[in-house]
Design a protein around this nucleic acid. Structure first.
Lengths: 206, 206
DNA sequence: GTCTATACCCGGATAGAC
DNA sequence: GTCTATCCGGGTATAGAC
């Protein structure tokens, strides 16, 4: 996953000029890098509470310069949500998610979903906090519901003695809740995957 | 819980004059009723995206009149958060939560917490979505962390083979996630309590 | 207690020089 | 590509008449 190679900087304020490679042309700001800055800021203070001034300062340029690279605030949101949804739907398309026993497919998705939440944390966090105020947000929420319905279908195939819709929502709630506290580097992703797997499938009692 | 008797209206826009009771004095808007209106609106569109104009219109009066009853937007938020926290901490003070085997205490808290989430849904929802932008928000988040730590302590007493902090967070995530989809009246609270209990303690696999 | 009118500020976005 | 300056709408909050 993480198909396209992206900068992977922390978040430094200064501009980013390419190493050496030819002279005369600097390539300071890619859209992707600005989206990354924006996504982090949106998550920290909330989308509405984050001003374009905040974003431009975080990127190290003025508001006007920032607008030279980005068409507007909502475009940044859309790009971030796109990335999150691509990651999630990518999981559903994986071999382990499309064939096999329902239990195994569900397990595969849950484990891989955790990994995507970790690698795409800022983008998925944004997705999971949407309220649906604008057309862009509603579009993203609709796609997210699609994803959730796939999960619900699998849960229904695994257990028929509980309300599959409710069970699926609690399952998603458990997995998705990690965006509220997990921060990269605090614990190995593998350990996190294991913890979620056990909690979801075995519960708290042995 | 739900100690104080509150109006319990749906949300009607018109003013609320008291039944008969004396003549000459109407008591249109209590703080509590306005907080309820505000909490619902905050949850629908987000705190920052909700204007005082929105709130006053939802209450059926103009913005200026609204200010006659409320000191400001943040005061509304604070009142709502207060109510949510009172509900949650009330659970921790119940007999079933303070004595007995750790497992039983934990189970009691989880089940009662679900009930509080349902009865105080708009207020708790607000609490669980805070970003910590203002002093009020940071105060509420601090109290919420207190609550979570109590849970973590109990989880640690129940299982020592998993990271109790992680397990407690996943547990809270599962329980709290219901604010994202549960709406009063859709299913009996008792069924919801049962579903959460089973998912949390037994997991998806029988 | 409710209204109209308004002060004041801040946010998104644009103009146009360099 | 970056800047300073500015427009303009909308937000919180207040003044003051009724």
């Amino acid at each position: 996953m993480t198909s396209d190679g992206r900068p992977e900087r922390g978040d430094g304020p200064g501009r980013v000029s390419r190493p050496g490679r030819r002279s005369g042309h600097t390539e300071p700001y890619t859209l992707a890098s600005l989206v990354e800055v924006a996504a982090r800021a949106f998550n920290e203070r909330g989308y509405d509470a984050t001003s374009m001034e905040d974003l431009s300062r975080a990127a190290g340029i003025t508001k006007s310069s920032f607008y030279h690279h980005v068409s507007g605030k909502e475009a940044l949101l859309r790009a971030a949500l796109d990335r999150a949804l691509d990651g999630l739907f990518g999981v559903l398309a994986e071999p382990g998610a499309v064939s096999g026993e329902p239990v195994d497919r569900l397990r595969h998705i849950v484990r891989r979903q955790v990994e995507v939440l970790v690698t795409e944390l800022p983008y998925v966090t944004l997705l999971l906090r949407l309220r649906g105020n604008t057309e862009t947000e509603r579009w993203a929420l609709a796609r997210r519901r699609e994803f959730d319905q796939t999960i619900a279908g699998l849960v229904a195939a695994v257990r028929d003695d509980v309300d599959p819709v409710v069970a699926a929502r609690l399952l998603s709630g458990t997995v998705n809740s990690l965006i509220e506290w997990y921060r990269p580097g605090r614990m190995p992703t593998a350990d996190l995957v294991e913890a979620v797997d056990r909690q979801v499938f075995e519960g708290l009692l042995r």
